[in-house]
Deep mutational scan, measured.
Amino acid sequence: DRIFMTRTEALEFLLKAHQTAVDKIGHPSHKQTPADHAAIEALDRLLLDVRARRVDQFQINASAAQIIVTD
């Protein structure tokens, strides 16, 4: 599946995904793992790359739809 978004929409989408990941590892019942921190770092890099126009398409994980940034 493909989803087309403007750059602004894609950045909002990534910010929400980032916040969800941060909230998940901050929850008291969740045991933090290196994979959790790696996922947040990957989202940080992706946010910067989309914002800087170095990336025009991405996929958060293998089961997610491919996001295509349109400007």
Rank of each mutant, 00 (worst) to 15 (best):
D1A: 02
D1M: 02
D1S: 03
D1W: 03
D1K: 03
R2A: 09
R2F: 10
R2C: 09
I3S: 03
I3G: 01
I3A: 03
I3W: 09
I3R: 06
F4K: 04
F4H: 05
F4M: 06
F4Q: 04
F4L: 08
M5N: 00
M5S: 00
M5R: 01
T6G: 04
T6E: 02
T6M: 03
T6C: 04
R7M: 08
R7W: 13
R7T: 04
R7A: 03
R7E: 02
R7Y: 11
T8C: 07
E9W: 02
E9H: 04
E9N: 04
E9V: 04
A10D: 00
A10R: 00
A10E: 00
A10C: 03
L11F: 04
L11D: 01
L11P: 00
E12N: 11
E12Y: 11
E12C: 11
E12S: 15
F13G: 01
F13Y: 15
F13E: 03
L14V: 03
L14M: 01
L14N: 00
L14R: 00
L14P: 00
L14E: 00
L15Y: 13
L15I: 10
K16M: 10
K16V: 07
K16I: 09
K16T: 07
A17Y: 08
A17H: 07
A17I: 10
A17L: 14
A17D: 01
A17T: 06
A17K: 04
H18S: 04
H18N: 02
H18K: 15
Q19V: 06
Q19P: 01
Q19S: 07
T20M: 15
T20S: 14
T20E: 15
T20C: 06
T20H: 12
A21F: 13
A21Q: 08
V22M: 14
V22H: 06
D23Y: 03
D23S: 12
D23T: 09
D23E: 14
K24Q: 09
K24G: 06
K24W: 07
K24E: 09
I25F: 10
G26C: 10
G26R: 15
G26E: 09
H27N: 13
H27W: 10
H27K: 12
P28F: 02
P28M: 08
P28W: 02
S29P: 08
H30Y: 12
H30S: 10
H30L: 06
H30K: 06
H30D: 08
K31D: 11
K31N: 13
K31Y: 10
K31T: 13
K31E: 13
K31W: 10
K31G: 11
Q32R: 10
Q32C: 08
Q32T: 14
Q32D: 13
T33G: 09
T33H: 08
T33M: 09
P34V: 09
P34K: 09
P34L: 10
P34Y: 07
P34R: 08
A35I: 06
A35E: 14
A35H: 08
A35V: 07
D36W: 06
D36G: 04
D36R: 03
D36L: 15
D36T: 05
D36K: 03
D36C: 04
H37L: 15
H37W: 15
H37N: 10
H37K: 12
A38S: 08
A38K: 09
A38C: 05
A38Q: 11
A39D: 10
A39I: 14
A39W: 13
A39G: 06
I40A: 04
I40Y: 03
I40W: 03
I40R: 03
I40G: 02
E41S: 10
E41W: 05
A42S: 09
A42C: 07
A42V: 12
A42R: 14
A42P: 01
A42I: 13
A42T: 12
L43S: 01
L43R: 00
L43E: 00
D44S: 15
D44T: 15
D44V: 15
D44L: 14
D44G: 15
D44E: 15
D44A: 15
R45H: 07
L46D: 00
L46R: 00
L47P: 00
L47D: 00
L47Q: 03
L47F: 09
L47M: 11
L47T: 04
L48I: 13
L48E: 15
L48W: 05
L48N: 15
D49E: 13
D49K: 04
D49T: 02
D49Y: 04
D49C: 07
D49F: 04
V50P: 00
V50D: 00
R51K: 13
R51P: 02
R51T: 08
R51C: 06
R51I: 14
R51G: 09
A52E: 14
A52Q: 12
A52V: 05
A52Y: 14
R53H: 14
R53I: 03
R54K: 11
R54S: 05
R54V: 11
R54E: 04
R54F: 05
R54C: 04
V55M: 04
V55E: 02
V55A: 04
V55Q: 04
D56Q: 12
Q57C: 10
Q57D: 04
Q57K: 12
F58P: 00
F58A: 00
F58N: 00
F58L: 02
Q59R: 13
Q59A: 06
Q59L: 06
Q59P: 03
Q59I: 08
I60G: 01
I60M: 08
I60C: 06
N61T: 12
N61R: 08
N61V: 07
N61E: 12
N61C: 06
A62V: 08
A62Q: 10
A62D: 13
A62F: 08
S63Q: 13
S63L: 13
A64Q: 11
A64R: 07
A64N: 09
A65R: 06
A65E: 08
A65M: 11
A65G: 06
Q66M: 15
Q66D: 04
Q66N: 07
I67T: 01
I67P: 00
I67K: 01
I67W: 01
I68S: 04
I68D: 02
V69C: 02
V69A: 02
V69E: 02
T70C: 10
T70G: 04
T70A: 06
T70S: 10
T70W: 09
D71R: 06
